[in-house]
Structure formats: C-alpha cells, structure tokens
C-alpha cells in the first residue's frame, strides 16, 4: 500500500469542492437517457438506505405509538394493533410526565449539569489532544495510551473512591462536583478521537504557520479548531446526550436531592417500586430525547463535505 492511500491528510486540497454526487454530475452533463440509467442504478441504493433506516426506526416507532396508548392497552395487545381503526390514542402518559412533581426543576438542573458537562471535557480534551498530536515531550505515546486505556474503567468502580474524596472536599451534592466527574468520564474518548483527527491534519499547515511566527495558541485556535469542526461536532453530540441521559452519576454524587437532581432522576421516580406502571416511561423517553435530537440536527450542517477545504482557504 502506498503512502498516499494511508495518508488522507496529504490529499486535502485548498480549494472548495462540490459536495454531493448529484452536484458532480452537473460538471459532466450527460444525455437524458444516461441520466435515466443513472437514476435507475441509484434506485437500489436509495431503497437499501431507506429500508435500513426504517428497520432502525421500527423499535422506536413502537415506543412512539405505545406512548399514546392507554396503559392497560399496552400490556394487552401489540402496539401495531393501535394503527388500525378504531383509534384510541390518549395523552395520559405525557400529561403524567409533564405534570410530575419537580419536572421543571429537573429540566433546568439537567441543563445546568449538561452544558458545562459537555463543554468542559471537549475543551480540556482538545487541548490535550493537540498536545499529544503535535507536540513532543518525553513519554508522550505511553501517557497517551494510558489515557485511552482508561476508557475501560467501569464508572461503577470509581464511584466509591471519588465519593470519599468529594466528602472531604465538600463537593457532594454540588454541580461543580458533577461537572468535573462528567469531564473526567468523557475525557478519554475526547482525547482519543480528537488526537486522531488533529493528527490527520496536513503537516504543511503547521510548518508554514510556525514559520510565520504563530504561537501554539494561535495555531490551535485559528487552524486546528476551525479545521476540526466535524470531529468536535460529533463529539459534542455524544457527550451531550451521555450527560443528558445519565442517571447513575447524578444519583451518586448529587444524591437525588430534588433541588439539584436532573430530569432522569425525576423520571425514575415516576415508576413504582414494582415497575408495574413502566408505561409512563414511553412518554418520558420521548420527552427526554427531544433536546439531544435538536442538538444532533443543529450540528448536522458541520458534517458537510467541503467545509474542511473551505475553511483552509482564506
């Protein structure tokens, strides 16, 4: 295998490239018949992508339909039976979740926990990733490999030692305590993914910037960060939804106190000790899913091809 194929970074061109295959076609106009053939050839591809997407959505669709069914019906018949008349959809589950005690406070607490819990690890992680990718210091590779290896530490094993530490530092039950915990748990992945991405940036960029007398800080903020937006965006999405959906860390470090507890804790209080009214979770799952999806869609634009090349230019 030649060097050129294993090194995508060498191939980054300083011109903006048209993004979609469809756009490429316009560069080489074809006859209508050829276009028709092309569309027909595309058809299986489209069908496959649609089919797989639907397959993946099917379980969630079941949840969505169930969330609008009366609790008694959920355990008596399959959710698909609700799709044929006579329809009997109710909002009971949603009303129960939305009017639950402390849901508003829980939502605000979730935001207070999640926003710094997302920004901090990505910020600190990208500093470290830059250091690991483009700086040289003794033991760098080994330290990095240990950082990545820390991914395997089960969170459960850290709870007791950290809780002991928090008690002496009076961090138990406070937001900064939870932010730091989420930062730590998110860091190994952030450092690993970002180092990989930074590493693949073209070496020439750094050399010329350094020749121009740019400091590391300038290189980082002006070159590395703008060029890594797709990686940063995907990491942001994941960190956001992990912290948003977290129950364990909040329960242990915050203690479930209603004044600081996030929405996940409030939601878990909706189910009785036998779990016999689990149906209410159908609605809760959709309500708590909304914000992560908004984040996902709003960050979608950063995944477009050509953005990388475009920002280098200029």
């Amino acid at each position: 295998m030649s060097d050129s194929t294993t090194h995508p970074q060498m191939k980054v061109r300083p011109e903006a490239r048209p993004a979609q295959p469809a756009a490429r076609e316009e560069e080489h106009p074809r006859l209508d018949a050829a276009r028709l053939v092309h569309v027909l050839l595309q058809a299986p591809l489209n069908i496959i992508v649609v089919a797989v997407s639907l397959l993946w959505l099917l379980p969630t669709a079941g949840l969505l339909v169930s969330s609008f069914r009366p609790a008694q019906a959920i355990s008596q018949s399959g959710w698909w039976t609700a799709l044929v008349p006579p329809y009997h959809f109710v909002l009971d589950n949603y009303i129960q979740v939305l009017t639950a005690n402390g849901m508003g406070q829980g939502f605000i607490n979730s935001l207070i926990i999640t926003i710094p819990g997302t920004i901090l690890p990505i910020l600190i992680g990208s500093f470290a990733a830059y250091g690991f990718a483009w700086m040289n210091f003794p033991g760098r590779d080994w330290i990095f490999i240990v950082v990545v290896g820390l991914l395997v530490v089960p969170i459960q094993m850290t709870l007791i030692p950290i809780l002991q530490l928090y008690n002496t530092l009076h961090l138990t039950g406070t937001f900064p305590g939870v932010w730091l915990a989420h930062t730590a748990y998110g860091l190994p992945l952030a450092v690993y993914l970002l180092r990989n991405f930074f590493q693949s940036l073209p070496k020439d960029l750094f050399e010329s910037a350094r020749l121009d007398g740019a400091t590391e800080r300038q290189i980082f903020f002006r070159i590395v960060i703008p060029l890594s937006v797709p990686a940063l965006a995907s990491l942001t999405i994941f960190q956001f939804l992990w912290v948003w959906n977290d129950l364990l860390v909040a329960l242990i470090y915050l203690g479930g106190d209603p004044r600081v507890a996030p929405m996940t804790v409030t939601v878990s209080n909706l189910v009785n000790s036998y779990g016999s009214n689990y149906q209410v979770l159908t609605a809760a799952a959709f309500i708590s899913m909304l914000l992560p999806l908004v984040v996902f869609f709003s960050l979608q634009q950063y995944f477009a091809r050509g953005l990388l090349a475009g920002s280098i230019k200029g």
Binding site: I112, T174, F175, P176
Partner: peptide, 13 residues
C-alpha cells in the same frame, strides 16, 4: 457562577 450559588446550599452532609 450561577450554578455554584444554588448548589452550595443543598450539601447532603
């Protein structure tokens, strides 16, 4: 800053 203020009160100990 905002979050620290309310968070300081409900310490569990």
């Amino acid at each position: 800053a905002v979050a620290c203020a309310p968070a300081a009160a409900p310490t569990l100990a």
